[in-house]
Design a binder for these strands. Sequence first.
DNA 1: GGCTGATGGTTTCGACTCAAAACTATATGG
DNA 2: CCATATAGTTTTGAGTCGAAACCATCAGCC
Lengths: 178, 178
Amino acid sequence: MDRLPLLLDRVTNLLREDLREVATNHGLKLVQLDALRYLCTANRFSDTLTALVAWLGATKGSVSQTVKALERKGLVTRVRDDGDGRVVHLRPTAEGRALAAAASPAPALEGAPTDASTADALDGLLRALLAARGGVAFGVCRTCRFHEARAGGRHCGLLDVPLGEAQADRVCVEHAAQ
Amino acid sequence: MDRLPLLLDRVTNLLREDLREVATNHGLKLVQLDALRYLCTANRFSDTLTALVAWLGATKGSVSQTVKALERKGLVTRVRDDGDGRVVHLRPTAEGRALAAAASPAPALEGAPTDASTADALDGLLRALLAARGGVAFGVCRTCRFHEARAGGRHCGLLDVPLGEAQADRVCVEHAAQ
DNA sequence: GGCTGATGGTTTCGACTCAAAACTATATGG
DNA sequence: CCATATAGTTTTGAGTCGAAACCATCAGCC
């Protein structure tokens, strides 16, 4: 009895349904809210179009349009990089940040279980998903969105594991290249 | 440290990215594949437009368009109900079933953990999500998509719990009304 | 029977998404 | 300096999305 795909399907749908409603309540499409939320947590390495493309899993042409829509709504501004003339940083405006803050987390998750076992299970699932896509090398850990330089040493904020100083420059399986 | 929303976001995105690729490989949009997969598991109560709308979480106008696209591609046919002249049953064609079978489960889930604890965690999550939406009464259990009349008694196939004979006519929290 | 309302679907509209492909501009490496 | 890679934009055509208007059919009720 393999309930996993079924459960995952259902959870995903409910979550998206919920977020979609939040988005439309704020006059946005779901993808636009997704993008805005990501950009609000992105640092100077991960606030580019390419990173957003990787995160959302769509094509760059498509994402470029979405960003244009966000810009038109005054939620995001484009800032050319000083060093590299090709890259453009996508900075949420104050209004954009306010909207993202108001729109997350998903209301449906308010009462969600906060116990460690649930997170652990998702952890395992995430690792499996990443492994299934061939453990694609997508970026150096030190430049990853989830890389944290803590007091006790470097840390991966997504998988919640400590990292040796040496690993910080290794390629990271998680592709939220930053 | 609340990693749950973050993990859920990531898992959802990866899963969708994966499914989207599968869909485009078969010349479909992601939503179309979602709809087709649902219809392939639906019985005579749940193969209607309204049920599909509830499952996908979009508006009926939108879903009607999607179904039209599937019909145009020869993957689904419309069949008027005998008893109720208003309802239309959406039956996947042989070709539609073949495509859905070839396209699922998501390749990324192939190597996913099959242990019970992962499923249990998702189970809890699903219950929380359903509770958060106010435990909406969406249909009588007996007419639910996941209702099963087993040898040992009635059974809910989604939450994997046995049901008393009396409960079968109670309102079900899960809204996949069938 | 006939009226009223609810239910199941379809259609139309405008804004937007999507993938693919062509394109521009800026790096980087021999 | 030239070839190639990288970052991003634009265009095009099919399709999604929500909203609102619309058309049937059914169910309750007097």
